[in-house]
Amino acid sequence: ISSSAMTSIQQLKGDLISTGDKPSSNLDTYFKNCTVDPTQDVLKRLETLEKAFSQRFGQAVGPRCVVLGEQRFSLGVRQYYKVMEAMLKSEEKRLSVQNFSKLLNDSTFHTSLLACALEVVMAAYGGVSRYNHGGGDQAETDVCFPWILDVFNLAAFDFYKVIESFIKADPTLSKDIVKHLETCENLIMERIAWRTGSPLFELLRQEHEGGAAEQVETPAS
């Protein structure tokens, strides 16, 4: 394992050591302030997504590596809680509200946030495999972005929405990780968001029907 990859992982683990694998008391207060408490749904969703993640990780990397997938998921959950809390603090400051019931009961928001957290973890570990196996490890490249979107059945356009706020909310992310997220962002913007079935087309249609003065470009354009 190269020193740069080790640094990347150690830094991530170090940053997350104080973050538990359960919602902190601050995050719990945000949950309790909601009109509808999202706690049970959050936990249930994590359980379901962990099963999907572990199963697909095992298929991609090999059944003997399932435990590695579990470790990555566990780190991803810590990162997810950490960023969620920071995002809510920033939104509380910006909007002067404490009830985020609608956002915290939005399944797409949670799934996108967790996917982004896992992408951060996977990117940190990705370096290990590349350096360890001389860049030829096909199994590891199988779990590279946009693999996570497929595992979570998540639209790229929804994943895109969380990236900037995610980077803003976690100033401890390394330069390499931020660069990786930027690469994901560019891939979505240039290609993935324009694939058939993307929610972007429905949004463009609604914009157009909403009487927008400007002429909306056709999807082909």
């Binding site: 995002m87 920033s90 939104e91 910006r94 909007l95 985020f100 609608k102 956002l103 939005d106 797409t108 928001f109 929405k161 969380v162 900037e164 706020s165 980077i167 803003k168 992310l173 330069k175 931020v178 660069k179 997220l181 930027e182």
Partner: peptide, 21 residues
């Protein structure tokens, strides 16, 4: 410390992006 370009305006937070404001 990184070169990421933040493009969102001050009135755009994660709540607006998920239509929850």
């Amino acid at each position: 410390s990184h070169d990421y370009h933040f493009g969102l305006e001050d009135h755009e937070g994660i709540s607006e992006l998920f239509d929850c404001d």
